[in-house]
Amino acid sequence: MLRDTVSNLVKFHDYLISKIDPRVRDYPLMQDPVHMTSILLTYVFLSVYIGPRLMANRKPFRLNTAMIIYNLSMVLLNAYIVYEFLMSGWATTFSWRCDLIDTSSTPQAFRMIRVAWLFYFSKYIELLDTMFFVLRKKQTQITFLHIFHHSFMPWTWWWGITLTPAGGMGSFHAMVNATVHVIMYFYYGLSAAGPRFHKYLWWKKYMTAIQLTQFVLVSIHISQYYFMEKCDYQVPLWIHLIWMYGVFFFLLFSNFWIQAYIKGKRLPVIEDIPKQNGSTSVPISVVANGNGKHLENGNGNVHNYTNGKLVLGKVKEI
């Protein structure tokens, strides 16, 4: 029984390897699903179990400089990814309707393959978001939504770019996601840059609205497939999965929005501390129900109020 199971797993593994598109086979992490799955499982284990225990009796690290460099680097990386997606099809030859998978060996096809892989690889870099939380002892911010989004995205994208690396209309959601991340990482770069940038952080609430808009755009674009008279997209399964992805994450982020800004669990009431000894007043977050978690003070911290006790933390919707 065990021997048959192992034999079947080996056969399935070999079958997957044989289906990897030869144009992407030599890229890092593209050789088989074992390596990337192992990395993501390790990430989850470190974030949820090992990391918090290692930091339990240690002081939180102050990583403001590292966070500024990281966030602004991610702005540049994602801006480059958006540009490459546009130049490899979306702003040049694509119709934005039934754009088929490119199986050719043209320069444009290889350009799309390179940017698709770069987008995929950027998802592993983004795992550092969680590591910053762990090292700064912000464990309360590592939610199910946070972990699921960070691990599920690269895992699913491996299957997409190993089988169809130049995915046509199936790559639209990646371009939109990279665009959102330009805005998001710019915000977090400012939030880590110091109090002098605090006045520019008033739009945090709208980050979730931008995320929701992303999933609406993705769902609308991919839904065109179901209303076209003819669209011979080579792998319809990708269409169905992308549609489900857009709807599923829209529901998850909508729930976050409701909990955070309608029910008020993260929505702060801003008040000013009176000036004392000539010092400048500092805005604080006062939340009546004691569950608020949300006010950037310009250096990556947030004033949290839980049962009347002030705790330092950070809310980061990704």
Rank of each mutant, 00 (worst) to 15 (best):
residue 93 T to G: 08
residue 286 V to I: 12
residue 216 V to F: 15
residue 92 T to D: 12
residue 263 K to I: 03
residue 20 I to A: 00
residue 146 H to D: 06
residue 183 I to Q: 06
residue 30 M to T: 05
residue 64 N to P: 03
residue 179 T to P: 00
residue 275 K to E: 11
residue 277 N to E: 15
residue 43 Y to C: 04
residue 164 T to K: 09
residue 239 I to F: 14
residue 24 V to Y: 03
residue 308 G to S: 09
residue 287 V to D: 04
residue 226 Y to H: 14
residue 229 E to T: 12
residue 50 I to T: 04
residue 58 R to M: 07
residue 242 I to W: 13
residue 222 I to T: 15
residue 191 S to V: 00
residue 206 Y to G: 08
residue 265 K to E: 14
residue 134 V to P: 12
residue 7 S to R: 10
residue 10 V to L: 14
residue 274 P to V: 15
residue 299 N to G: 04
residue 245 Y to D: 13
residue 26 D to T: 08
residue 222 I to P: 02
residue 139 Q to L: 02
residue 48 V to G: 00
residue 161 I to N: 11
residue 307 N to R: 02
residue 294 H to I: 07
residue 18 S to P: 01
residue 311 V to F: 01
residue 230 K to R: 15
residue 301 N to T: 14
residue 228 M to G: 10
residue 115 V to F: 01
residue 175 M to S: 06
residue 83 Y to C: 04
residue 245 Y to C: 08
residue 90 W to L: 04
residue 28 P to C: 05
residue 225 Y to A: 13
residue 257 W to P: 09
residue 63 L to Q: 07
residue 23 R to V: 00
residue 276 Q to T: 10
residue 261 Y to W: 13
residue 7 S to I: 05
residue 224 Q to D: 06
residue 28 P to D: 11
residue 185 Y to P: 09
residue 91 A to G: 10
residue 43 Y to Q: 07
residue 38 S to L: 14
residue 219 S to N: 07
residue 94 F to P: 11
residue 154 P to Q: 01
residue 295 L to S: 05
residue 147 I to K: 02
residue 51 G to V: 02
residue 182 V to K: 08
residue 243 W to T: 13
residue 11 K to S: 13
residue 189 G to R: 06
residue 91 A to W: 14
residue 227 F to I: 12
residue 310 L to C: 03
residue 312 L to M: 09
residue 227 F to G: 12
residue 232 D to P: 01
residue 1 M to W: 06
residue 53 R to Y: 04
residue 196 R to N: 08
residue 187 Y to P: 02
residue 197 F to Q: 01
residue 187 Y to F: 12
residue 94 F to W: 15
residue 195 P to G: 04
residue 34 V to L: 15
residue 244 M to Y: 13
residue 67 M to A: 15
residue 317 E to M: 10
residue 306 T to R: 10
residue 58 R to A: 04
residue 169 M to A: 00
residue 202 W to Y: 11
residue 13 H to A: 11
residue 97 R to M: 07
residue 29 L to C: 05
residue 260 A to P: 03
residue 275 K to F: 00
residue 114 R to W: 11
residue 310 L to Q: 03
residue 115 V to M: 08
residue 255 N to I: 12
residue 111 R to Q: 15
residue 317 E to C: 11
residue 308 G to M: 02
residue 51 G to I: 03
residue 219 S to I: 11
residue 259 Q to K: 15
residue 267 L to M: 08
residue 127 L to Q: 04
residue 178 A to P: 11
residue 126 E to A: 12
residue 178 A to E: 05
residue 177 N to W: 13
residue 26 D to A: 07
residue 188 Y to W: 13
residue 266 R to N: 09
residue 153 M to K: 07
residue 100 L to I: 09
residue 221 H to F: 14
residue 187 Y to A: 09
residue 134 V to K: 00
residue 93 T to M: 01
residue 12 F to I: 14
residue 86 L to G: 11
residue 98 C to N: 00
residue 240 H to E: 15
residue 183 I to E: 02
residue 4 D to T: 10
residue 26 D to F: 03
residue 295 L to E: 02
residue 114 R to T: 07
residue 100 L to P: 00
residue 159 W to M: 08
residue 300 G to K: 12
residue 278 G to L: 09
residue 124 Y to K: 05
residue 26 D to S: 14
residue 256 F to G: 08
residue 231 C to N: 04
